[in-house]
Design a binder for these strands. Structure first.
Lengths: 213, 213
DNA sequence: CCGTAAGCACACGGATCGGTGTACATAACA
DNA sequence: TGTTATGTACACCGATCCGTGTGCTTACGG
């Protein structure tokens, strides 16, 4: 862990610097937003000289883009690689977010930067498409009639829950999970017992009062 | 049009000033975002002296909060007051957004300001709750089994479509409308013939490929 | 006429921001 | 030893931002 990276000459590299900067970004950009986090504050939090920061990143824009690339494993892969779950359960697991909702930074970045051409915005787009694609793959695996449509729908539910959680300050993922259960049961012919009016409740999700954080 | 407002003494009041400021806010805050729109630029666009602006508003924060209050009629009331539509049609009409999607400023404000205690953030919360409540009222009117739940679900769909449209730069409302149709048909016993898998299509909404802008 | 209210033009202040420049310290090679 | 890469500490720049202070113009009403 406290090792060296292969440099141009194999010299000892500041193992911490870049890592600490990105680590501090994760925390500060989330807590305060991107625009409200200055480079001075960020460098102080990372215990890195400002000069060093600008030797690792050409500017804040690049840093922001890099910062966004550090989320895939935690959210995206973490859910889809659960081989212990059935495809259907995996689709629903995407809505099981821990109580202190992280609040999707991709939406935040796209809104804050406000420039669709910004590298971070472009990456946010790619990421969202990738999530929808993986949801579609899983939907296909689960035997959904129209996997692409279901994937897109579930992706929309996730974003809706994230946005609504942000605005209302109350966890909206249970509501989204309930909708997801309905959509999945409607799309997967085999697993839709199609009972009168209680399509939800097939997972461990709450009865969905509204959202209680 | 070039009339006067009732002032303390019936004097001639600058009819334009405040109105022009708010009007310019609508355009600039939407096009550029709140943080990226300076007071100088805003005053210039409104053709109002900066000094005058600060005599109408104590600060930018108050202006932003006031700016958010100018949307209810266009979106919220505009849909729910359509007496020519059945309650069910009204619920679905909430997803018929014109192609140049305005892109909900409440979400944008909540993300940009990043302070839940900011007056504008509080108003955004109130507004979102009001929308969900009106959706619930209409759902009740339409005979939904659980109107509050359906209202909350539809509100989530709207926010999801707005957020996703923002990030992906592609209209996500058709997808949301398709989900809404499913939820509505599932929630309203009378109007749900409960056919195999084609619950949608009861309105004029598209067959929902994915979203084409 | 003069008082008063509204508005304008313009400069300024303090703060913050992204980004640089400079000088110095350290450690690994050679 | 010296060179080179890496990093620190700290001042500094220009730009932008929100907000004010000052003085001038306009127009109404008594």
């Amino acid at each position: 862990m406290t090792e060296l990276e292969k440099g141009p000459k194999g010299r000892r590299r500041g193992r911490g610097a870049r890592e600490r900067i990105l680590s501090a970004s994760q925390q500060l950009f989330r807590e305060q937003g991107i625009n409200r986090t200055g480079m001075d504050q960020l460098c102080a939090a990372a215990q890195v000289s400002k000069r060093t920061a600008y030797q690792h990143f050409t500017g804040k824009d690049e840093l922001v883009a890099e910062y966004l690339r550090r989320f895939d494993p935690s959210v995206l892969s973490g859910v889809f690689d659960r081989t212990d779950l059935t495809p259907r359960e995996r689709l629903l697991a995407a809505f099981d977010i821990p109580p202190p909702t992280p609040l999707c930074p991709y939406i935040g970045a796209a809104v804050e930067l406000h420039d669709p051409e910004h590298p971070a915005s472009q990456y946010a787009r790619d990421y969202k498409k990738a999530v929808a694609a993986r949801l579609a793959d899983t939907a296909r695996e689960a035997g959904a009639a129209d996997p692409e449509q279901l994937g897109e729908q579930l992706a929309l539910l996730i974003d809706g829950a994230a946005a609504r959680t942000r605005v209302l300050n109350a966890d909206a993922f249970p509501t989204a999970a309930a909708i997801a259960a309905v959509l999945i049961d409607n799309a997967i012919p085999t697993s839709s017992p199609r009972q009168p009016s209680d399509d939800r409740g097939t997972t461990g999700s709450a009865p969905v009062p509204v959202g209680g954080r």
